[in-house]
């Protein structure tokens, strides 16, 4: 065949060819905006591998994000994507899921977006037990605005708005989500990517509100002010701090100080999922109208 020519058969991708996560990416928009060594890409990739495992369809999946570094992920994802407003991703997602229960709805948010400005929406989304999977990228800071303190900066942490050390305690976001009524709660790190992928996959298949906290590193803004410095050192730090739920069970609070408890932390399938119970209510009304 002469140069420049190609047959139709050649243009069509082979069915047998295994898909990579590029299938779900707008690769033409690369390189992405995240800094070198930032863990947000790692967590996004873990989500996309979970999506591949489940074979999520692009036109039946809606990914909603708020504002911030983590929320910029949706700009690269080839699903129906909504880059909404700061803190409100879950409110947008609630409207989308209630209007179209058949969609798989994923929310990508950060610790500032999800736990500070969006904290109210987070607890109410947990309470409603709507079938939405929320992945909260926790990098302990506001990266996009330049390293200000977030609710997850932690006591003694440094930030541009905590130049003498932050003196407020953090949330335990997973315990918050569980107490608020989330029926699937898990935590992973950007070091334990295989575990994170599995947790996200199971969260998506769980019929109810799933909350997955992904602890990750921000070497540029958080790492610059808080030891250890550098992406590699921060990642190794995550590795050292992470401890499985099983191992943590026998440990005292003192021993668990500063550790990141990972794994599936809570799962309850006895609570009715909201779109399902709403559909049952509509059915009840229809029947009473017919009578």
């Amino acid at each position: 065949m002469a140069e420049g020519e190609s047959s139709v058969a050649e243009q069509e991708p082979s069915v047998a060819e295994p898909r990579t996560i590029d299938h779900y990416l707008h690769t033409d928009r690369f390189p992405h905006i995240w800094c070198p060594g930032c863990g947000l890409g790692t967590v996004t990739a873990a989500f996309l591998r979970a999506a591949l495992e489940l074979g999520l369809e692009k036109d039946r999946t809606v990914v909603v994000a708020g504002i911030g570094c983590s929320s910029r992920a949706v700009g690269y994802l080839d699903f129906g994507t909504v880059h909404s407003i700061h803190g409100r991703a879950l409110a947008f997602a609630t409207g989308i899921k209630m209007a179209h229960p058949e969609f798989t709805v994923i929310v990508l948010t950060g610790d500032g977006d999800g736990a500070a400005i969006g904290g109210n929406h987070l607890i109410h989304a947990c309470r409603r037990n709507l079938d939405i999977t929320t992945i909260l990228f926790n990098n302990n800071t506001y990266g996009m605005t330049g390293g200000q303190a977030s609710p997850q900066t932690g006591m003694g942490g440094y930030a541009t708005t905590a130049p003498f050390g932050f003196d407020e305690p953090s949330f335990d976001l997973c315990r918050l989500a569980e107490a608020a009524g989330a029926t699937y709660v898990a935590r992973g790190t950007s070091y334990g990517v295989r575990q994170l992928q599995k947790l996200i996959r199971d969260g998506i298949t769980h019929p109810g509100f799933s909350f997955i906290e992904a602890v990750t590193q921000c070497p540029t803004e958080y790492g610059k002010r808080n030891p250890p410095k550098g992406p590699v050192q921060m990642l190794e730090n995550l590795k050292e701090k992470a401890i499985s739920r099983k191992k943590a069970e026998g440990m005292t609070p003192e021993e668990l100080e500063g550790r990141i408890v990972t794994g599936l932390l809570h799962r309850d399938e006895s609570v009715p999922e909201l779109t399902a119970s709403y559909a049952r209510m509509l059915e009840r009304i229809r029947k009473s109208a017919d009578e």
């Binding site: 809606v62 909603v64 909504v82 909404s84 407003i85 409100r88 409110a91 947008f92 997602a93 609630t94 409207g95 989308i96 209630m98 209007a99 179209h100 969609f103 109210n120 929406h121 109410h124």
Partner: peptide
Amino acid sequence: MQMEDEIASICACIGASLT
């Protein structure tokens, strides 16, 4: 939907509208 505040209310409306 009775939402948790007016911000959530209009955001849910926009979300539904986008579908």
